[in-house]
Amino acid sequence: MIRLEGTTIHLEDACPVEEAERLLELLQSGTATGIDLDGCRSVHTAVFQLLLAAPLPIHTLPPEPMLAGLLAGRPSPGPA
């Protein structure tokens, strides 16, 4: 599930493919300043790749080690 709290996007539990759209909307809206994956168990590839593309810092990595590892190594796509 994806929700916006304040200016932080929270990803929780499992985020299936259709939630990529929601995440994209949040990113496009420009209101969010960071992403929190603390309660995130799994993400569909569509959501995952959007996380890689997102020009926002990830505040908390997900507990799942594989996912955390992949996101930790994320190159910053934002402006240099």
Binding site: V17, A20, E21, L24, Q28, Q49
Partner: peptide, 12 residues
């Protein structure tokens, strides 16, 4: 760019 991003196209 996010404005044209297709969330359901796999690019990885």
């Amino acid at each position: 760019p996010l404005a044209e991003y297709d969330p359901f196209s796999c690019v990885l």
